[in-house]
């Protein structure tokens, strides 16, 4: 087991992927954090104008929505990191030497799951740091409260890191189901940036389907952080944090099991 872990650890450590992902996520979240903070700040100013639509946003909700933006928009990064731990093996045809060195395929997959977490944690911290840098400075410039001295806010921020890191496990599972690297990245992008947001808005329209929307993976991730753009804008509620963890892990487990029974059972080479 130890040897399998060390081998998988070195696989990630010896390529540039993880820190490039971390840097890109940091930059992306920095911009998105700032943009979102500015638009909220302008929005709340607008709401005070007579005749304007009354806004239900209090400054605290604004701050937490901005600070958890990485969970709402940036979870694609740890998810891709996770997926690539599997798809890269097929893309670069290193799966053959991998399985020659360790023929027990469950062990290989298990080691990938265990090892991706610390790297995903690093990527997630980078993403959240970017969000805070962009978001808090924009709020401060606009004269809005930043709530950075608030312990509860830091708890939310910390939990958003946890949620993001868990996404890497979903990514490993997804990559083991869809091993074509380009297809995996495209599907992840389309689902997380387009399909899920659309589904959340649509499902939230009807009482019957509103509950279902809470169980979407993105919603589960936001539930872990305990804050969401969707909640702040009054679209839908979230599950309790612990249920969010279970739901997100559930997605990971289902995908990993499917991957083990398909990709990792087939003939290789």
């Amino acid at each position: 087991m130890n040897a399998a872990l060390r081998t998988e650890w070195r696989k990630i450590a010896t390529t540039r992927l993880w820190w490039v992902t971390a840097l890109v996520m940091l930059a992306y979240m920095l911009v998105m954090g700032a943009v979102m903070a500015l638009s909220f700040a302008f929005g709340s100013e607008a709401s005070t104008m007579p005749g304007g639509e009354p806004m239900a946003l209090d400054p605290r909700d604004i701050a937490s929505s901005v600070y958890t933006l990485a969970v709402a928009l940036g979870y694609i990064f740890p998810a891709i990191l996770g997926a690539l731990t599997v798809t890269a093996e097929f893309r670069h045809r290193t799966i053959t030497p991998t399985l020659l060195a360790q023929p027990r395929r469950s062990l290989v997959l298990g080691a990938k799951l265990a090892v991706v977490l610390p790297y995903a944690l690093a990527v997630s911290v980078a993403g959240v740091v970017g969000t805070l840098l962009g978001g808090a400075s924009a709020l401060a410039i606009m004269g809005e409260p930043t709530f950075l001295a608030d312990a509860a806010m830091w708890r939310t921020i910390a939990m958003s890191v946890v949620a993001l890191a868990l996404w890497s496990l979903v990514g490993v599972g997804f990559g083991s189901v869809l091993t074509n690297q380009v297809a995996a990245i495209v599907v992840l992008l389309v689902f997380t940036q387009f399909v899920e947001p659309l589904l959340r808005i649509l499902l939230a329209q009807f009482a019957v389907t509103e509950t279902a929307s809470k169980f979407l993976p993105g919603a589960a991730g936001e539930a872990i952080a305990g804050s969401s753009l969707y909640v702040s804008s009054g679209l839908a509620d979230l599950l309790p944090a612990w249920q969010g963890v279970l739901v997100l892990l559930g997605y990971a487990v289902v995908l990993v099991v499917v991957g083990r029974l398909t990709t990792f059972r087939r003939d290789i080479g």
């Binding site: 130890n2 040897a3 399998a4 060390r6 081998t7 070195r10 696989k11 010896t14 390529t15 540039r16 992927l17 890269a88 670069h92 045809r93 290193t94 053959t96 030497p97 991998t98 020659l100 060195a101 360790q102 080479g269």
Partner: peptide, 26 residues
């Protein structure tokens, strides 16, 4: 064993390619 279907991650150095498998080989 070296199979023709096997390959190497182009982003790794030759030494790192071997170092990756060294723990599993023991």
């Amino acid at each position: 064993a070296a199979l023709e279907s096997a390959s190497v991650h182009p982003g790794r150095t030759a030494r790192d390619h071997l170092r990756v498998y060294a723990p599993e080989v023991g």
